[in-house]
């Protein structure tokens, strides 16, 4: 039972991270119908920016943890957003009306580029970091211990999700975003600056991925330039599982993937956990391609 709870909490925090990345996939897919293959790399960049910010703060002598965390979060979100914006501007926008495969190929190229860019700049070795936020919260008479970092991840993700849902559902920006998702041409005719909305979608997705990147750095304490690929594919799986285009779906999908991975590692063995995720992806796409919360789609003739 305690072991189960432990895995549950690990799975939830992992799932929160996948969910945050998955939102970027699902929003971009919703609005321009492409798989932003470089999104995993954006998350990796977020993680590196957080690491570098922490080290820079250390070099400047700022070691008060709460301040360091806030600055890391802000810097990571800001700089990663710029990367998200630039990737869209350079690699995708000129291909808006091209054959369907062109943006996907361009995205794969971008992903390879960013990976190697990071490898050349920051080195191929994995980057270890001493725990910034050590300590555990113990419950059930010490049988289950939850690290503060994991707890913080879950809380922060919840807060971000609530804020983000309000942003999408209540503000005029969110309305414009949803309008573009329905019909870009019509939204453009009604005076919505479609290019700007698409850029903003990438910026928002990148900012959320940056949060995920920072949390991964805090939880695991080690990152390298290659973490984006696997996390990207799994988060995409999460987005598909939840139903592409649906924000709550992305979060739900992330949590499901996180739980599966966590329980699989806990009870079966960690070597095969990636196979479990990929198999799930294949099964979902075959039997329920619209995902858990997606709208059904009829082949239009």
């Amino acid at each position: 039972m305690e072991y189960f709870l432990q895995q549950l909490i690990n799975g939830l925090s992992l799932g929160a991270i996948y969910g945050l990345i998955a939102i970027g996939y699902t929003m971009v897919y919703g609005i321009i119908g492409m798989i932003n293959f470089a999104h995993g790399e954006i998350y990796m960049i977020g993680s590196f920016v957080a690491l570098i910010t922490f080290l820079a703060l250390g070099a400047l002598g700022i070691t008060w943890v709460p301040l360091a965390l806030v600055v890391m979060l802000a810097a990571s979100m800001l700089f990663t957003s710029v990367y998200g914006w630039t990737v869209e501007r350079i690699a995708y926008r000129p291909l808006r009306n091209s054959p369907r495969l062109a943006p996907l190929i361009s995205a794969i190229g971008m992903s390879i580029f960013l990976q190697n860019y990071m490898q050349i700049l920051q080195g191929a070795r994995s980057k270890p970091l001493q725990p910034i936020l050590p300590g555990n919260l113990t419950i059930l008479d010490g049988a289950v211990s939850v690290s503060y970092v994991r707890l913080a991840t879950i809380v922060l993700t919840l807060a971000l999700m609530i804020g983000f849902t309000i942003l999408i559902n209540k503000t005029s920006l969110g309305r414009a975003q949803r309008a573009c998702e329905q019909d870009k041409k019509m939204a453009g005719l009604l005076g919505v600056n479609v290019d700007r909305i698409i850029s903003l979608t990438f910026v928002m997705g990148a900012a959320l991925a940056a949060v995920a990147g920072m949390m991964v750095l805090l939880i695991y304490g080690v990152i390298d330039f290659y973490i984006g690929f696997l996390a990207g594919v799994k988060s995409f799986t999460a987005a598909v599982l939840g139903g592409v285009g649906s924000l709550p779906g992305a979060m739900l999908g992330g949590v499901v993937i996180g739980l599966i991975e966590s329980f699989w590692s806990g009870y079966v063995g960690s070597e095969w956990k990636d196979v479990a995720t990929f198999t799930l992806l294949v099964l979902v796409l075959i039997f329920r391609p619209t995902g858990l919360l997606g709208r059904p789609e009829i082949e239009k003739v």
Binding site: I90, I105, G109, S111, L114
Partner: peptide, 9 residues
Amino acid sequence: GMGMVVIML
């Protein structure tokens, strides 16, 4: 990677 992007563009 850059080449893939550039040729696609």
